[in-house]
Nucleic acid binder design. Structure first.
Lengths: 246, 246
DNA sequence: TCGGCTCATTGATGTGCCTCAAGTTTTGCG
DNA sequence: CGCAAAACTTGAGGCACATCAATGAGCCGA
C-alpha cells in the first residue's frame, strides 16, 4: 500500500506528482490499479500499456467509434458526453486521474470523450485488458467495483437532472467536486477546470442560468468566486444545508 | 443454448412461462444466467438461491438498507428509485424478468426497489454470489457486461433527462419499451404496467404533463391508446422520426 | 499596446412545464 | 350492484428557466 515517493529524477510532465500514479512513458502504477496489482503483475501490465497525450479541447474518442482501447487517466481532466442530432449536448461525467474510460461491452463507444485540461493517458487494447481481467482476480474485482460506483453516480445524477432545481443542481455539483477532490485541498476550495458551458451541459441548464445562479449564491454569501475557475465555501455546513439532498 | 421446454408438471405460478427462465421454488435457470451457466454449475447455483414473492406496490428493499441479497427477477416488473428528503422521487429504471438488482460495491443499496406487478424473485446472498463470480468465469463476464449495459442505459437516460423536451422524453420512452420488450410482441404494441406517476418520475415530469403529452400524441395520430396501460403505433417509423434522437 | 477572439455576466422578454383545481374514469370491496 | 378511493384527464394561471441581446473581462498574436 505504501508507495515510496520515487527518487528517480522524473521528467516533470505530470503537473503535481501524486504519490500513487506515475505513468511516465509508461511505467504504469496508476492509483486505480495500484491497489489491485502486485509487483510481479506490474511488469506484465507495463508490457501492455502505451502512452498518449491529449491537448485541451481535443477529442479522445467519439461516440459510436469502434472501441479498440480502454484508457486510464494519468493526469488531467476529461469530459464524457452524448449528443442529439441537432447538437444538444449532455455531459454524462467528468473524469480525473485514476479513472478508467472506454470500458464497453458493445464494440462501439457509448459516448464521446474530450480533454478539458492537458491529459495524459495510459492506453491498453481492450483485448489485452480482458485477458488481464481473466487472469488477475484483484483487477476484475477493482473493475467490477468501479463500474458499480459509476452506476451509483449515474443514478445520483439522474436524480439531480430529473428532480432538482438549478440552485440545488449547482450546489450538489460543487459539493461533490469538493468531497471527491483528488488531493483533498485545505479549507473549502473547489477547482473547476471546465467552462461554464460544460457545467451547464452537465447539469441540464444553460450557461446563463449557471452564471446567474453562481452570482445569486455569491450574493447570498454561500460561496466566494475568487476567479472563474475557483469556488470557496466560507461555511461549508451552510452549503450542505442549502443543498438539502445530503 | 437449446433448453428443453420442461416436461415436469410445473405449478403454474409463472404467468406466461418463457422458455428460458423458470425459478419455480427455485430450480434456477434464469435467462440472464442461462447463457452463462452450464448444466453442472446449475446445480451449484440452485443450492444457493431461494425464492421470494412480492405483491404490487410492495418494497423489495430500501435505499441505504444494508445489502445482504442480490436478486434476479423471475417474473414481473420492478421500479428502482431515489428520493429527496422532501419526497421528490426519481425513478432510475424499470427492470423485468432476467434482470439483476441489488448488485453493489458498497454495503448499502444505492437505491430503493419496489414491485410494480406481482414479482417473483430469485434471491442469493451477496457473499455466495461473489464466490460464484470468482469461480465461474462466464458468470462474471455476464455480470460485467450487464453492468456496462446498465451504465450505457443510464447515460442515455441522462441525455433524456437533461436535454429532451417532454414530447421527446415520452416518445423515447415508448420506443425503448417497444424495442426492448421481452417477448417481442406482434405489431407496434407497447405494454405499460406502471402508473402515470411512475412514468412522470422516470422522465422527470409531472403526471399532468405526461397525460397531456399522451393526449397530444394521440390527437396527432402518432399513437393509439386502447387503454391506460397500452400504447399502439399505427406507423412506427413516423414515431422514430418524431423522436429524432435515434 | 492594440485589436480581435473567446468566455462570462447581466438584462429584457418569452415559453414549456409546473401548480392548483375541477372533473371523469377505473378499480376495489362490501 | 353501489359506493368510495385511486388514477387519469383537462383547464386556467404562474413561475423557473430558456432565449435573445448587449456588455464586460481575460487572453493572445501581431
Amino acid at each position: 500500500m505504501s508507495e515510496p515517493n520515487d527518487m528517480t529524477g522524473q521528467p516533470k510532465r505530470v503537473p503535481s506528482g501524486h504519490a500513487h500514479h506515475r505513468c511516465d512513458q509508461c511505467d504504469v502504477r496508476h492509483k486505480a490499479m495500484c491497489a489491485a496489482v502486485d509487483v510481479a503483475d506490474n511488469d506484465r501490465l507495463a508490457a501492455i500499456v502505451s502512452h498518449r497525450d491529449v491537448a485541451p479541447g481535443q477529442v479522445i474518442f467519439e461516440e459510436g467509434e469502434t472501441a479498440d482501447y480502454a484508457y486510464n487517466i494519468s493526469s488531467g481532466e476529461v469530459r464524457l458526453y452524448k449528443l442529439l442530432p441537432d447538437g444538444r449536448r449532455q455531459i454524462t461525467g467528468f473524469l480525473a486521474s485514476g479513472d478508467f474510460l472506454g470500458l464497453v461491452s458493445d464494440d462501439a463507444y457509448a459516448y464521446g470523450a474530450e480533454a478539458i485540461t492537458p491529459v495524459e493517458l495510459c492506453c491498453m487494447r481492450l483485448t489485452n485488458l480482458e485477458r488481464l481481467i481473466a487472469d488477475i482476480p484483484p483487477v476484475r474485482e477493482k473493475l467490477l467495483d468501479m463500474s458499480h460506483d459509476e452506476l451509483a453516480a449515474a443514478q445520483e445524477q439522474m436524480l439531480l437532472l430529473g428532480r432538482k432545481t438549478a440552485r440545488e443542481k449547482l450546489l450538489s455539483f460543487l459539493l461533490v467536486r469538493h468531497d471527491h477532490a483528488d488531493p483533498q485541498p485545505e479549507d473549502g476550495t473547489v477547482h473547476l477546470p471546465m467552462s461554464r458551458t460544460d457545467i451547464a451541459d452537465y447539469l441540464g441548464l444553460t450557461i446563463e442560468t449557471v452564471s446567474r445562479t453562481f452570482t445569486a449564491l455569491r450574493d447570498e454569501g454561500l460561496i466566494e468566486l475568487p476567479d472563474t475557475h475557483t469556488v470557496r465555501f466560507p461555511d461549508i455546513e451552510a452549503v450542505r444545508d442549502a443543498a438539502e439532498a445530503w
